[in-house]
Amino acid sequence: MWYLHDALVSYLCNHLSRTPKINHYKRSTPPISVPLNKLFSNTFPLSIHESIQDYKVKDDLFSFQHNLLSTLPFYPNPDKDGRSSEVIQVPIDENNNYINEYVIYPNHKTKKAYASANHLVMVHGYGSGLGLFLKNFGAVTMDNWVVHAIDLFGYGCSSRPPFTPTSFEQVEAWFHDSFATWMRRRQIPRQNALVMAHSMGAYLMASYGINVDPDFCRRLVMVSPGGIIDHKKPIVIPAYFERLWERNISPFSLVRKASFYGSKLVSGWSYRRFSELPDSERVSLHKYVYGIFQARGSGEYMLNYLLKPGANPRHPMVDRKIERCNCQFDWWYGQDDWMNVHGGEVCSERLRRSGKSSTVVEIADAGHHVYLDNATEFNRMLVEKMRDW
């Protein structure tokens, strides 16, 4: 792969030396790629100097996470209302692997009554991490609720061991086993648990209910879930993109090969994605996603086992026995979502026929990252589920 590194660095030196203006906010689109000659037609707002500075501390993921969470009023110290939070690493095996968790307590009373409190578990999607829920943490803290945001095994600031699964079943077990251990170690009471999961995280939580524990939570909120059904419309996949996908070569590989230009490369996405946030949050989120994007590959290699090139599912949830899950379901999509809401409707109808509660909602002014695109409405809906507990 050395030739890829040399070619990329040469390109970056020639084309990314300017610091252009930040483009306007842009929602996520399907991972279907673009022609190679347009791949770098983007703008990359971060300066070379800033990119080099980020590269120097690229391996300190916890520092990126700490600086991001420090934009919250209740981290690392409690706020005036008594809300407090902390980052912990929960051991999950004898090899010193752990799940990274950010936990929030609304007050000292709830912290002491942990076992009898209600628990909101927040699970991110593919290639992401708990920090992307930054605009939700403050809104969902309320009396008698402990909030747990976790990095899935092999993602974010969780352990990133070599990815060893060689089949779909082993891939699911990789995530399910680590999640089950985390639930047990953290003593999450199943009937007092509301799990909110996004994209591929939602798929993994639903399959956890099917394969491992049908009663692992009382309610499961599936936010723009991936792997449910094919796209609304057929999509054209460039041949080169299909070959890269099948070989598990992802955009994260590109960032790693970009050396000290990696943070600048990421800014082509992050500065538009977070452009509507205050400067302190936007900068901290950019550094955070750069940190987790360039970190050693691990859990990301699950992608080709679950999705075909272009992100149609290899094992659609609509073809699996989702009615085995005994929790209440909610399926939330953005109105401009590239995920197909029909998949949620099909699963929801099947759940209702089996006597389970299941609803489907499309959220206005939002795309795939519903929790960020329209955080106000998303937070209102989630808080409503918590208050009606």
Score class of each variant (00 low, 15 high):
Asp93Lys: 04
Val140Ala: 02
Phe216His: 03
Ser280Trp: 13
Pro238Lys: 08
Ser253Pro: 12
Gln187Val: 10
Glu242Phe: 09
Leu204Arg: 03
Gly125Ile: 02
His124Arg: 11
Leu132Gly: 12
Ser47Gln: 06
Ser298Tyr: 07
Val236Glu: 14
Pro76Trp: 07
Asn37Pro: 12
Glu246Ala: 11
Thr164Tyr: 14
Leu46Glu: 01
Glu362His: 11
Asp337Met: 07
Leu306Pro: 08
Tyr126Pro: 01
Leu372Trp: 05
Glu276Gly: 03
Glu242Tyr: 13
Ser298Arg: 05
Ala197Arg: 00
Lys257Asp: 08
Glu172Trp: 07
Gly201Lys: 03
Arg282Asn: 05
Asn96Glu: 12
Gly154Leu: 00
Gln335Val: 08
Val140Lys: 06
Ile88Phe: 09
Ser357Asn: 13
Leu372Glu: 01
Phe163Ser: 02
Gly127Val: 03
Asp60Ser: 13
Pro313Ile: 03
Asp319Pro: 09
Leu72Val: 15
Glu323Tyr: 09
Pro214Gln: 04
Arg314Lys: 15
Phe260Gly: 00
Ile210Ala: 01
Pro73Met: 07
Met142Asn: 08
His315Gly: 04
Lys385Phe: 09
Val283Cys: 14
Arg272Tyr: 05
Trp174Phe: 14
Leu244Tyr: 10
Glu362Gly: 11
Phe378Ser: 05
Leu130Ser: 05
Pro251Val: 03
Ser224Leu: 00
Ile188His: 14
Val370Arg: 01
Pro161Met: 06
Asp373Ala: 05
Ala173Glu: 12
Glu281Cys: 11
Ala364Asp: 12
Arg296Pro: 00
Phe44Cys: 04
Phe64Arg: 01
Trp332Val: 01
Asn192Leu: 07
Trp2Tyr: 14
Val360Asp: 07
Gly131Phe: 00
Val87Gly: 06
Asp365Thr: 13
Val255Met: 01
Ser253Phe: 14
Ser51Asn: 06
Gln53Lys: 15
Glu169Gly: 13
Leu382Pro: 06
Asn379Asp: 07
Met339Thr: 02
Lys385Gly: 07
